[in-house]
Amino acid sequence: MTAQDTIRARARELLESGEVASFVGWEAGRFANQTTPLIISDPADADKLVFNEYCVNTLAKYVRDLVPRGKVGLVVRGCDSRGIVRLIVDQVIKREDVYLIGVGCPGVIDRKSGEPLKKCTECRHNNPVICDEMAGDEVAKDAPADRFAEVREVELMAQPERSRYFESIYAKCIRCYACRDVCPCCTCRECFVDARRENWVGKQNNVAENRFYGLTRVMHIGDRCIECGECERVCPMDLPLMKLNRKVIQDLNDLFGEFESSMSLDEGPEPLITYDLADREEFM
């Protein structure tokens, strides 16, 4: 039985028994090399579910809107499961709100280029970190040798060049907020960009306001980022957003000890909401 068969069978059982009210997976798209996320509540629809190398979307965040309707069944790979951990730790959902069917993931393929997606070549945890049952076995996959290679690339640039590089990024950004909407860390009930009273970010789409958004986004999610790379994948302007996220993660790593967010439900507080008396002192 393939993982896809198991997913279909289990989804049907779960929906029929009423254990879950809805089930989230992927369905085949119009084209063979395309899938789209699928939310079903009718057991008869279970056969629409697919699992193949084109399942590019990370599913965790869909759960947020489904939970009020009842327990949600969900297929989770490494990235989806860490997204779920994130949502649980951030009190967006509760552990008992979701039923997780884990699958090992060999990485997915960019349908345009036929190459593995960037986020998958960078992936360090392709098997679920939490799940209720596994569909198929865990999959062995090489983790990238250097987690921060792209950050170091930028760090090696001279200062004015770096400045220009990021200004060009912010000049391209159209502030569609796709990166925010897809991010399992971005679960505020109202994003700071929409706060009218504080008016953190102006309505204009210009470099300055985009910079405000970009920098603040990283400060907000940096110590919780699960490195799923979805922000980068969904960016319609192809901005290298993970270069920013990973910069913060790299610094947290260097300064406050090895850090990888959302690996289990009982992690201590994130590095930026805790402290250590022995922290490095550089502001004296």
């Binding site: 730790v89 951030d90 009190q91 967006v92 679960t187 505020c188 009930r189 109202e190 507080p269 994130e270 909401i273 805790t274």
Partner: peptide, 13 residues
């Protein structure tokens, strides 16, 4: 309370 998500980061700090 309209905006509060209750994730408790403030409790920690």
């Amino acid at each position: 309370e309209t905006l509060c998500q209750g994730d408790g980061a403030c409790v920690n700090i």
